[in-house]
Design a protein around this nucleic acid. Structure first.
Length: 108
DNA sequence: GACATGACGATTT
DNA sequence: GAAATCGCCATGT
């Protein structure tokens, strides 16, 4: 057992309600502290192989779909989010504050 | 074992 | 207020 970070990230991401989004830093913070939001995105990249992990619901602090480049062409990140009811424009989440889901606050 | 990289974030200049 | 820099920690080479 070693990839605890990955599994932990997967768990939190899987808990994200439909129509909501969260940020890498929020997940990292929930895991213990804002140690490194980079690792969250890194873990998600690896976790992309897990369909149970809606990585498209995870965006950066600005609500930008920074990881869209890592998504398959058949399933663009912005399209997936729009299907969930989230408005996307210019590869960014509109009303991001409204759709924001903080595990350390909602899931507490 | 060390160096370089990465879906970020906060702080400082 | 904007731009540049540092920190963070796991993975890959």
């Amino acid at each position: 057992m070693k990839s605890t970070f990955f599994e932990d990230v997967y768990e939190v991401v899987k808990l994200i309600p439909r129509g909501r989004v969260t940020s890498y830093g929020a997940i990292a913070m929930y895991l213990g502290a804002h140690k490194s939001a980079r690792m969250v995105g890194y873990a998600l990249k690896q976790g992309m192989d897990f369909p149970d992990v809606p990585a498209h619901r995870v965006v950066n602090r600005e609500g930008m779909l920074t990881g869209r480049h890592h998504f398959p062409d058949d399933r663009p990140m912005d399209v997936l989010l729009q299907q969930e009811g989230i408005e996307i424009e210019n590869m960014r989440v509109i009303h991001f504050d409204r759709c924001y889901w903080d595990p350390a606050r909602e899931l507490l």
